[in-house]
């Protein structure tokens, strides 16, 4: 690790001032950034911790909308119990140490192709709220580790419409225990959304054919005969494209069966 300065502002405005200097970087829970720095793959001169900003903390449920502060830890999201799919997802990330440090804002900003939260955000049609604007989940994710965020833009909150029923199925990569494939299914009055993480070289995506079928018949049987195109899927030590495509179908079915 290289040396760096550390600041912990108490509000978003101060954070933005601190981030404006060259080579400054936001620090959420540090569960991705700190290991990267330890390996000397990142060398920010200043870390601006977001964990002291109270306006970015907490889970608020009002009506059909849940609003999660951008610096809220996975453990707190799980505790809040907003809806089944989200609670299960947050409670299944990493281990207790990771869940009590890692944040939803950090996870969405990082947009790891194997991360869990992107599936929840995309399947619920979430709104990513930043210091500057509001971004639709459908516009936000732009491929592996790529998002619509600008430099010096921080996620202050995430708003999700609460589905009628939902479920997240995560098949763990045996080593990292991130999602080898993760499927989030969310059913709303106006249709079903299915978001898939871990599988594609383009990052999280919606399986629209399945959405169409499930919107008219919300049952695992409805997608039994379907298959998802494997051509742009990830192939690595832990599974081929074809294996991942199979998992997408299997997990979607299981998510539908388990949705509550």
């Amino acid at each position: 690790m290289y040396n760096f300065d550390f600041v912990k502002p108490l509000n978003v405005a101060d954070a933005l001032v601190a981030l404006a200097s060259e080579e400054a970087q936001a620090l959420g829970g540090g569960q991705t950034l700190i290991p990267t720095m330890k390996q000397r793959l990142a060398s920010p001169e200043k870390l601006v911790s977001l964990s002291g900003i109270s306006e970015m903390q907490g889970v608020d449920i009002s009506g059909n909308i849940v609003t999660i502060g951008g610096a809220t830890t996975h453990a707190n999201v799980a505790l809040a119990g907003a809806f089944e799919g989200l609670t299960g997802l947050a409670g299944g990330i990493g281990d207790p140490a990771v869940r009590n440090r890692g944040t939803i804002g950090g996870s969405l900003a990082n947009n790891d192709p194997a991360a869990c939260y992107p599936a929840a955000a995309l399947a619920t049609g979430a709104t990513i709220v930043t210091n500057d604007r509001e971004i639709d989940a459908d516009d936000y994710f732009q491929g592996m580790f790529t998002t619509a965020l600008e430099d010096v833009e921080i996620i202050t909150a995430v708003r999700m419409p609460i589905p009628q029923v939902s479920n997240y199925q995560k098949f763990e990569q045996p080593a990292s225990r991130f999602a080898l494939v993760g499927v989030f299914v969310a059913k709303y009055a106006d249709g079903v959304r299915v978001a898939v993480t871990g599988a594609s070289e383009n990052g999280v995506f919606r399986w629209s054919e399945a959405e169409g079928v499930l919107s008219t018949n919300f049952s695992a049987d409805a997608i039994l005969g379907m298959s998802v195109d494997s051509s742009e899927m990830i192939s690595d030590l832990h599974g081929t494209k074809e294996y991942r495509a199979n998992l997408v179908r299997v997990l979607t079915g299981r998510a539908v069966s388990s949705a509550s």
């Binding site: 045996p174 599974g239 081929t240 294996y243 199979n246």
Partner: peptide, 13 residues
Amino acid sequence: MPVSPARVWSAIN
């Protein structure tokens, strides 16, 4: 070995 999920699935299929 390792009899990983991917290998078992490939063997079956």
